[in-house]
Design a protein around this nucleic acid. Structure first.
Length: 564
RNA sequence: UGGGGCGUCGACAAGCGGUAAGUCACAUGAUUUUGGUUCAUGCAUGCGGAGGUUCGAAUCCUCCCGCCCCAGCCA
């Protein structure tokens, strides 16, 4: 892992760093940071940033800090700190001895603010929030200066000190930078640097009642930590002049801010606000609902951190707004799971099959490979018997042309077992198919020399008396719209919800070995998809399988096409 | 003329003046005891548009068009 030569696709950020290395701008150092606000759960979009920041540090043998941007006690909480640390760790990154906190710099930041005041570059403003907005002007018209803008340094120092001691109410005063109310960049129109917030902070408790704003805290935190490249998303591009202004005015070490486009994914939303809405409105079961694009949700769903890292590498890093096809994420997932998942047989919607020519009471043990992609995965014994279950979808009474599976008079192979032929369809009074009577061909046992006829399909099955019961949950996209995050396409998020994003199947039959499964092993339910044991249910002693992702399905594609 | 960005295949994305990488998706065929995997083949005479510079332009210049972000005491 000591590479700077990697065969990863390059990107504009790497070029900037390469140039900086050449020019010795930062004495050959590379130091990045991942700066989440602990006010929510991390999602796949954060993973892009994590992989970028930690990945670059690793590649250039530099460092990457995990820094919590905890400057707004009203919204932040220790529990988020915990989950963020878990997620970063799970993704496979190491932030060194300890994480950093912007709140750890509150004293230093306060001193910086005083210096700014002393330089005549900041002032205490008594304007109300509404007045500040009014005075700011609009996009096209310049703002006007606050009547408090020209207070003396002494008065400002005194007032700021009294803000700190709690003398004033929330909203009564703020500290503002004195820049340019006529700037075309709204961020430069005397931005607020400090506000009064009489809130309990999860780390500093009640020590402070003034808190720095993002723009003030972030650049200085970067500076204090010796960050070289401060990588953030595009919406902060407008803030860069302010980032630079603060650092220049204070004449302190000056990292370089670089902006890239945040991740968007088809059929999902990645804004904290919208994700929160899904949770609060009860459309999902919580932040770790397996349908959520949160790292905790994806982990529970069965995503591997490998596949997420692979995905983040493949999508690249650029400055154009884009939306990545979910299919790419799924591809990365399948690619890994194909190599690692143990193949097992599970029948989700069972229909009984009786082998009329198989002796009652007889069973036999069939050798079954665990993973054709991995010989080291070995094999297991499966019990075959007279009464089996197969998948309801694998039988059709009146099969269309390209249906290769079981139908009256048709033959299929049972995986690892024999070729069977459907002789009779048994129905109840309501005309529902309840059972299939089939015969098996003893000469076609799996593994025998290839003398038997070819058959067009191979089905998965379980032995009726040996299989165990299981609940299986199938997940689909949360949204039917490819771009639910787009306010124009989807003004009402809930209108884009997919009513079929969760299907719970309670009467599934799975092979008996699955009784011993633990939560760490991914499975491929043969011909169906990749599954994992739901860790939340498992902790409660229940066995529920989550479908991580389907297998690619040529037949499903054909059917879809046929329907139009 | 408010400021800041961005426009290369259906989706991403390399390319940085020498004649359009790669990935996903899609299509076709082969192999297959998973309609999985794997393999092979195809998929931009074209780089938002129009001019210009040049022997040569996606790359440089000019103008135009389109899209995104900004008016929190959020980050």
């Amino acid at each position: 892992m000591n590479t700077s030569d990697s065969n990863l696709p390059s990107n504009f950020i790497r070029y900037i760093i390469d140039d900086d290395m050449k020019s010795q701008k930062f004495q050959g150092r590379v130091h990045t940071r991942f700066p989440p606000e602990p006010n929510g759960f991390l999602h796949i979009g954060h993973a892009k940033s994590i992989c970028l920041n930690f990945g670059i540090a690793r590649e250039y043998q530099g460092k990457c800090n995990l820094r919590f941007d905890d400057t707004n006690p009203a919204k932040e909480d220790e529990k988020y700190v915990q989950s963020i640390k878990e997620d970063v760790e799970w993704l496979g990154f190491d932030w060194g001895e300890a994480p950093f906190f912007a709140s750890g710099y509150f004293t230093a930041l306060y001193d910086c603010a005083r210096q700014l005041i002393s330089k005549g570059k900041a002032y205490v403003d008594d304007l109300s929030p509404d007045q500040i907005r009014e005075y700011r002007g609009t996009l096209k018209e310049p703002g006007k200066e606050s009547p408090f803008r020209n207070r003396s340094v002494e008065e400002n120092l005194d007032l700021f000190q009294r803000m700190k001691t709690g003398e004033f109410e929330e909203g009564a005063k703020v500290l503002r930078a004195k820049i340019d109310m006529g700037s075309g960049n709204l961020n430069m129109r005397d931005p607020v640097l400090y506000r009064i917030l009489k809130a309990h902070h999860h780390r500093t408790g009640d020590e402070w009642c003034i808190y720095p704003m993002y723009d003030f805290a972030h650049c200085l935190s970067d500076s204090i930590e010796g960050v070289t490249h401060s990588i953030c998303t595009l919406e902060f591009e407008d803030h860069r002049p302010l980032y630079d202004w603060i650092l220049n005015t204070l004449e302190v070490y000056h990292p370089q801010q670089i902006e890239f486009a945040r991740l968007n994914l088809t059929y999902t939303v990645l804004s904290k606000r919208k994700l929160l809405q899904l949770v609060e409105d009860g459309h999902v079961d919580g932040w770790d609902d397996p349908r959520m694009p949160t790292l905790s949700g994806m982990r529970r769903r069965g995503f591997t951190s490998n596949s997420i890292r692979d995905f983040c590498e493949r999508i690249g890093v650029a400055k154009s707004n884009s939306i990545i096809d979910l299919a790419l994420l799924e591809h990365c997932l399948r690619e890994e799971l194909n190599k690692t998942a143990l193949r097992v047989m599970a029948v989700l919607r069972p229909i009984k099959v009786i082998l009329t020519n198989y002796p009652e009471g007889q069973t036999e043990e069939l050798e079954s490979e665990n993973n054709p992609e991995d010989p080291d995965a070995g094999s297991r014994k499966l019990t075959f018997s007279r009464e089996l279950y197969i998948e309801r979808d694998d039988f059709m009474e009146e099969p269309p042309k390209k249906f290769f599976r079981l139908a009256p008079g048709k033959e299929v192979r049972l995986k690892h077992a024999y070729i069977i032929k459907c002789e009779e369809v048994i129905k109840d009074e309501q005309d529902n198919i309840v059972e299939l009577r089939c015969t098996y061909d003893p000469d076609t046992k799996s593994g025998q020399v290839e003398k038997s006829r070819k058959v067009k399909a191979t089905l998965h099955w379980v032995s009726a008396s040996h299989a165990i019961d299981a609940e299986v949950r199938l997940y689909g996209n949360l949204f039917t719209s490819p771009n639910p995050g787009d306010e124009k396409e989807c003004p009402e998020l809930k209108d884009a919800l997919n009513p079929d994003s969760l299907e719970i199947l309670k009467d599934c039959k799975v092979e008996p070995g699955l009784a011993d499964a633990n939560g760490d092993q991914p499975f491929q339910f043969l011909r169906l998809g990749y599954f994992c044991l739901d860790p939340v249910a498992l902790a409660q002693g229940k066995r529920i399988f989550n479908r991580t992702v389907t297998l690619k399905d040529e037949w499903a594609k054909l059917q879809k096409k046929a329907k139009g």
